[in-house]
Each structure stands twice: as C-alpha cells, then as structure tokens.
C-alpha cells in the first residue's frame, strides 16, 4: 500500500483550495480565515496554514493533497509540506498584476524541490484575462531554465485539475502505462 502526497502552491487567490476541493474525495480540511490584511481585497478568506484533501484509491491507498498558504508570512510551512512530496503543482493567477514575478518567486522559493522533483504549472483565470498568453509563460519558464508543462486550468473543473495531476504522474514516470 502506498500513500503519497502532492503539493499545490501559488499566490493568494490562484485557486489552490478550490483545486484540492475539486479533486478531494473527502470534505477538505481548510484553515481559511477572514483576511485582516489587504489580501481581503482579492478574496474574503485566505489559507493560513494549509489545505488538506485526499484521493482514495481503492480502500487502502490514498494520495494526500496539500495546499500551501499563499502568503509569504507562512512560507515556513512550505518546506514542511513539501518534504516527501511526489511533486509540485504551481497555480498562477493570470489576472494578477505580475504573473511573471509570481512565477519567478515560487520557482525560486521551491527551487530545491523542483531540482529533485517535478513541477507542473497551471494558469488560472486565463478566460478572464487573455494576456499574458500561455506562450508568454513558456518563454518565462525557458528564461528560468526550468522544464515544466504549462496548462490553462479552471480550478473548479475536475478534468483540468485531474490533467495537472496526470501530467505530474506521467512526468514522474513516462513509462507508467508501458
């Protein structure tokens, strides 16, 4: 029996909690709190410690889904959560002012993990804001010398979030179906 975990990270409001909620077989355990800072201008509640969800595989096996707090002040949680994780799913919000900076920040913050593990990038709210484009993200990733697939996703759509997880699994083991 195996139990693994996948980490969802990204800036505030990128859809980490929603993505876990979409995939989880159990009601997610969230540490959402009323935002007292200016984060509340983007959303009324924010994750302060972590989000937890789970995908059950049969009766015995399960994959744990953890969402990191988006705010940097809880960055000390990031290392704790990523320890032993299968991979990292970075969600970026295309409607934020500087998604490129977000990408740089989070790839830098999780640099050690990315070097060892795999990274999948999902860009949310591309239907709301069509610039930057998916090609822009690819260019930025190339600039950062990172190899990672970039997908347009809607964190509310199970198929989209599932594709992120599938891409992660295939990236970890391209011969998974062989």
């Amino acid at each position: 029996m195996s139990n693994k975990k996948i980490i969802f990270t990204g800036p505030v409001g990128a859809g980490k909690t929603t993505a876990i909620q979409t995939m989880s077989d159990i009601p997610i355990v969230s540490t959402n709190e009323e935002a007292s800072d200016m984060t509340k201008d983007r959303k009324p509640q924010t994750t302060v410690a972590m989000d937890y969800g789970r995908i059950n595989i049969g009766k015995k096996e399960k994959i744990h889904l953890y969402g990191t707090p988006g705010q940097e002040r809880f960055s000390f949680m990031w290392d704790i959560l990523t320890t032993g994780a299968l991979g990292l799913i970075l969600l970026l919000d295309n409607s934020r002012e500087n998604p490129k900076q977000d990408l740089k920040f989070y790839t830098s913050a999780f640099k050690d993990f990315i070097e060892k593990g795999d990274l999948i990038i999902g860009v949310t709210r591309m239907d709301e804001v069509d610039s930057p484009t998916i090609n822009d993200y690819r260019g930025w990733i190339n600039e950062l010398s990172i190899s990672a697939p970039v997908f347009t996703v809607d964190a509310r759509e199970r198929q989209d979030v599932s594709s992120l997880v599938q891409a992660l699994l295939y990236s970890l083991d391209p011969g998974i179906a062989a």
């Binding site: 195996s2 595989i57 599932s162 997880v165 599938q166 083991d173 011969g175 998974i176």
Partner: peptide, 17 residues
Amino acid sequence: KNSEERGFFGRLLKRLK
C-alpha cells in the same frame, strides 16, 4: 520499488480518469 510505485501511479491514474 519502482514497480510498486508504478503500480500505485497506475491505480491513481485510473482513479483520476
């Protein structure tokens, strides 16, 4: 170990799809 892990991934993929 890889076989076991691959089996787990495969089952997870099935579950996802």
